[in-house]
Amino acid sequence: MMCGHCGCGGPDHEHEHEDGTRHSHSHSHAHGHTHTPTTLVELQTRVLAKNDAIAARNRAWFAGREMLAINLVSSPGAGKTTLLERTIRDLHGQYDIGVLEGDQATSLDRDRVAATGAPVIQVNTGTGCHLEADQVARGLNELRPAPRSILLIENVGNLVCPAMFDLGERAKVVILSVTEGDDKPLKYPHMFRAAPLMLINKIDLLPHVDFDVARVTASARDVNPAIAAIGLSARTGEGMQQWYDWLRREWTVATEAAFA
């Protein structure tokens, strides 16, 4: 394994590989800096350890309330908010649904979701390109979702960073619209690997675009063989029932898991 980024390209650069993945460096310095006596400290700390600990706490919080939390991720404009609006309206009376909206700025999406009557909290991430677990924790504190409810978290529109940050959700659901390229799963493999379900939205537009549903499904399965795919249109309602069936199965598992 090369250490191409350590910037120490001198002949005195030594590697000691111990187990193949972890290796220590000893640098014999040819550099011209002054030597203060130093101590080497082993840290071995995952950078996301704090986020993951808060995510675990969120997950336990959801479990204690027998709730289902879903993290919706997509590119900007794939139709997450329209999907939320329709889902809330169609499932009205069947489930309590709360929404946590993440965007860099504005509360436009919150206002749209609020018009459905569902409780909704907007989390503005400012310069952040993704939601983090502690923003969700603070959002929950404000939203106070009901036991046995469904929490739909609309992440910031971005197919890169949200893949890295566990929020405590039961599952990530990635939404792709047919106006995007059908090679997206190959271009953003992390996200498609992290999600057990892909929703292909705006299928009412299929006659007008060069988008191959079979190809996108195959691409997604190249990176994640277990990913399920549902084609739907949040505008016309076509295919939405399959998404509701998926939600119902997940909700059933989440509410029963509390006693498992």
């Binding site: 972890r22 220590s24 203060t36 006596p37 130093t38 101590t39 080497l40 400290v41 082993e42 840290l43 071995q44 700390t45 995952r46 950078v47 996301l48």
Partner: peptide, 10 residues
């Protein structure tokens, strides 16, 4: 993604 070691002044 891990912080493995650091060198600090004695």
């Amino acid at each position: 993604l891990m912080v493995t070691t650091m060198e600090i002044e004695e």
